[in-house]
């Protein structure tokens, strides 16, 4: 599985990398919304995108809208500190498939990934 991790915090990238350390999945890295959009444009077969909300240049939710407006159907999981029910509803309305509130555990991340990938197959 090829996963695009998008977050402006290097420590979050490191944390997620550690979670995938003993797996055969490939992680790609982007540090703002624009980099995520560019990576999707240039890279084939991304299975899922993890997207932080608050990032410089292009925010996560702006990137989410642009990707969906551009026709991308890649499953997107928001991974963010914004934990208000209104934020979650907004992200789902704009086309996010799942939403993870920080802090989160490996179990939560893996379960959410399983959920979105199963829905894609179904």
């Amino acid at each position: 599985m090829k996963i695009l991790v998008t977050d402006d915090s290097k420590s979050v990238h490191g944390f997620i990398e550690a979670m995938f350390a003993e797996t055969e999945h490939t992680l790609l890295h982007a540090y703002d919304g624009q980099q995520a959009i560019d990576t999707v444009a240039g890279e084939q077969n991304i299975d899922v995108i993890l997207l932080d909300w608050e990032m410089p240049n292009v925010t996560g939710v702006e990137a989410l809208k642009k990707l969906r407006d551009g026709g991308s159907e890649i499953p997107i999981v928001m991974v963010t500190s914004k934990n208000n029910v209104k934020d979650i509803s907004e992200a789902l309305t704009f086309g996010a498939d799942e939403y993870i509130m920080k802090p989160f555990t490996k179990d939560i991340l893996f379960e959410k990934l399983e959920m979105v990938l199963e829905r894609k197959v179904a």
Partner: peptide, 27 residues
């Protein structure tokens, strides 16, 4: 917050849960 993320899809969270005001230092 951790418990409602274990196994529960976000759409169900929004649909069937009310968020309570923050009361302590827990995340």
């Amino acid at each position: 917050q951790l418990e409602v993320q274990r196994g529960l899809g976000s759409a169900n969270l929004v649909k069937y849960f009310n968020q309570k005001p923050k009361v302590d230092d827990r995340p």
